[in-house]
């Protein structure tokens, strides 16, 4: 059995993290956090369309769109929760634009490959794992 490979955009993000020393990785996570795009207008006024990620300790909401087999991930989280925003931003940037099968083949424990285990702690990273699980489930439902 071969190891599941990361989609190109996520692999690039992982390499960006791994090239840095541990303390600089937090700074990069903060950059991702600041880059989390605003929700598209069609979701901004419709919070009921978004799903709360219960695995995260802060209120983060995600919604997935699949159009012609292409996945788009949108997320929103408050500025007081920069870590959660960072995770959401990594997944939104790393998964948007991929095909359904590519998203579903993304390893569930990708959060632990970013070199953040020591600087962020495993407990906090499980929030990102939960987020990815919910994204995949939404993709599966949207593609069905």
């Amino acid at each position: 059995m071969t190891e599941p490979r990361l989609p190109a955009a996520l692999a690039e993000i992982r390499d960006e993290f791994l090239e840095l020393g541990e303390s600089d990785r937090l700074q990069l996570l903060l950059e991702f956090s600041n880059e989390l795009p605003e929700l598209p207008e069609r979701f901004r006024d419709h919070p009921e369309l978004l799903e709360r990620v219960e695995e995260c300790q802060s209120p983060v909401f995600i919604v997935v769109e699949v159009e012609s087999g292409v996945v788009r991930v949108h997320a929103t989280a408050p500025p007081e929760a920069p870590t959660t925003r960072g995770f959401a931003s990594i997944l939104a940037q790393g998964l948007s634009g991929l095909g359904v099968d590519e998203v579903l083949a993304t390893p569930g424990d990708v959060a632990f490959e970013l070199g953040l285990t020591r600087v962020v702690s495993p407990l906090r990273l499980s929030g990102m794992t939960g987020m990815l699980g919910r994204i995949k489930r939404q993709v599966r439902e949207a593609a069905a």
Binding site: L26, L30, A81, P82, T83, G86, V119, V120, S121
Partner: peptide, 9 residues
């Protein structure tokens, strides 16, 4: 903090 990045913001 609970959030490990909050100080950095």
């Amino acid at each position: 903090d609970e959030d490990v990045l909050l100080y950095e913001t």
